[in-house]
Amino acid sequence: MRLIECKGLSKSYGSKQALKQVDLSLEAGEPIALVGPNGAGKTTLFSLLCGYITPTAGEVRILGHKPGDNALLGRVASLPQDASLDPNFDVLTQLVLFATLQGFSKADAKAEALRVLSLVDLADCASQKPKSLSHGMAKRVAIAQALIGSPELVLLDEPTAGLDPANAKKIRELVTELAGKTTFIISSHNLDELEKLCGQVLYLELGQLTQSVSMDDNQQDQYLTLTMQQCDPDKILAAVMALPDISSIEKKQHNEFLIKHNSEEAYAIESALFSLFKHNNWQYKAILRGRTLEDKLFS
C-alpha cells in the first residue's frame, strides 16, 4: 500500500487555482522534502493531505484512505508553521488532552504526553505554560504534539524556521532518529537542511509539481561539488580541466565549482584534486560527491 497517492489533484479558491493536476505517488521511508516559492501551493497540498480542505478535482489517498477518514486517526499528524499552544494551560495538560482525543485512556494519555516530551528533550518543562518557553522550546513542544501516538506520516511545515542553531539541530536529529518508523514530509526553504535530511525532493511551482528529485540517483557518481577558500577561479578552472578523466568544470557561485568526470575509480578524482591543491598551495573548503540540491533544482 502506498503512503500517498494523488491523481489529478486540483484546488481552486474562486478564480484562483492553487493546485493544478498534481499526480503523486509516495512510498513510506526516508524523509521527503516539499519545496517551492511562496504561493506555489505547498500549504494547499498539506491541507488537502490532512483533510482540512477538499479538492476541487482529482483524488487523494493516504494509506489507502481519504484524508480525514477515521481510519487515519493517530496514523497521520501535521505541524503547521504557525502552530501554538494555549497560553493559559501547562504543556502537560494540553498534550494529555490531545492524546485523549486520539483515544488514549487518561493514564495512558499522560504517559504518552511524557514520552513525546522526552523525545524532544523537554520532559522537565511539562508543568510550564507555553508563554514561559523560548521560541525554540515552544516549537519542539509543538513537534512533540505531532508525534503523539507514533503516527506513520507526519507533515512538518517549516519546522526549523526562526530557530537558533541548537534547537534546529535537535529537530533535525529527531527527524533522523524517527525516520525508520515515521515518514516525514518537510516543507522548507532551507535547501541545505533538506539536502542532509531527505531522500526525495518534490518541487512545486505555480500549483504544479514540476520536479521530483532523488538524492540517491546514479548520476550523482559522475559529479563532484568543490568549494574552495579564497581562490583565482580562472586558475582553478584551467588546472582542474587539465586533469585526466575530467569532462567539464563549471563555476556555480562564489568559490563553488561543479566538476563532471568519467572516472570509474571511486576516489581517483578526489586524489588528483588533493595533489593539485598541494602542488599549488591551494586551500579547499569542501568536496562533496554529487550535485547540490540547489543545482539539481535550478540549473
Score class of each variant (00 low, 15 high):
residue 47 S to D: 13
residue 47 S to L: 10
residue 48 L to N: 05
residue 49 L to S: 04
residue 50 C to P: 06
residue 50 C to S: 15
residue 52 Y to A: 14
residue 52 Y to M: 15
residue 53 I to G: 12
residue 54 T to Y: 15
residue 55 P to H: 12
residue 55 P to F: 08
residue 56 T to S: 15
residue 57 A to C: 09
residue 58 G to K: 10
residue 59 E to I: 15
residue 59 E to D: 15
residue 60 V to C: 09
residue 60 V to P: 10
residue 62 I to A: 04
residue 62 I to Y: 08
residue 62 I to G: 06
residue 65 H to L: 13
residue 66 K to T: 14
residue 67 P to C: 04
residue 67 P to F: 02
residue 68 G to H: 07
residue 69 D to N: 14
residue 70 N to F: 13
residue 70 N to T: 12
residue 71 A to C: 13
residue 73 L to I: 11
residue 73 L to R: 12
residue 74 G to C: 02
residue 76 V to K: 00
residue 76 V to S: 03
residue 78 S to Q: 08
residue 80 P to W: 11
residue 81 Q to N: 11
residue 82 D to S: 14
residue 83 A to C: 14
residue 84 S to V: 13
residue 84 S to H: 12
residue 85 L to A: 09
residue 85 L to I: 01
residue 85 L to V: 06
residue 85 L to K: 00
residue 86 D to W: 04
residue 87 P to S: 07
residue 89 F to W: 07
residue 89 F to Y: 09
residue 90 D to M: 11
residue 91 V to S: 00
residue 93 T to G: 05
residue 93 T to W: 13
residue 95 L to Q: 06
residue 95 L to Y: 06
residue 95 L to R: 02
residue 96 V to P: 06
residue 96 V to W: 04
residue 97 L to R: 14
residue 99 A to G: 10
residue 100 T to S: 15
residue 101 L to R: 11
residue 101 L to P: 14
residue 101 L to S: 08
residue 102 Q to H: 13
residue 103 G to R: 03
residue 103 G to H: 01
residue 103 G to L: 01
residue 104 F to P: 07
residue 105 S to Q: 14
residue 107 A to H: 15
residue 107 A to C: 15
residue 109 A to N: 11
residue 110 K to L: 02
residue 111 A to C: 12
residue 113 A to S: 09
residue 115 R to V: 05
residue 115 R to L: 03
residue 118 S to A: 09
residue 118 S to V: 08
residue 119 L to E: 04
residue 119 L to H: 07
residue 119 L to Y: 03
residue 120 V to F: 03
residue 120 V to M: 08
residue 122 L to I: 08
residue 123 A to D: 14
residue 123 A to L: 11
residue 124 D to V: 10
residue 126 A to R: 06
residue 128 Q to I: 06
residue 129 K to N: 08
residue 129 K to I: 04
residue 130 P to Y: 01
residue 130 P to G: 05
residue 130 P to I: 09
residue 131 K to S: 15
residue 132 S to H: 11
residue 132 S to E: 09
residue 133 L to E: 08
residue 135 H to V: 05
residue 135 H to F: 09
residue 136 G to N: 06
residue 137 M to G: 06
residue 139 K to V: 01
residue 139 K to R: 14
residue 139 K to I: 03
residue 139 K to D: 00
residue 140 R to T: 04
residue 140 R to F: 04
residue 141 V to F: 00
residue 142 A to M: 05
residue 143 I to W: 01
residue 144 A to N: 02
residue 144 A to D: 01
residue 145 Q to S: 05
residue 145 Q to A: 03
residue 145 Q to C: 00
residue 146 A to V: 04
residue 146 A to N: 04
residue 147 L to I: 02
residue 147 L to H: 00
residue 147 L to M: 03
residue 148 I to P: 01
residue 148 I to G: 00
residue 149 G to T: 02
residue 149 G to K: 06
residue 151 P to W: 03
residue 151 P to A: 07
residue 153 L to N: 13
residue 154 V to W: 07
residue 155 L to K: 06
residue 155 L to T: 10
residue 156 L to R: 05
residue 156 L to H: 11
residue 157 D to G: 07
residue 157 D to A: 08
residue 158 E to L: 09
residue 158 E to K: 10
residue 158 E to C: 08
residue 159 P to E: 02
residue 160 T to Y: 01
residue 160 T to S: 10
residue 161 A to T: 14
residue 161 A to Y: 10
residue 161 A to S: 15
residue 161 A to E: 13
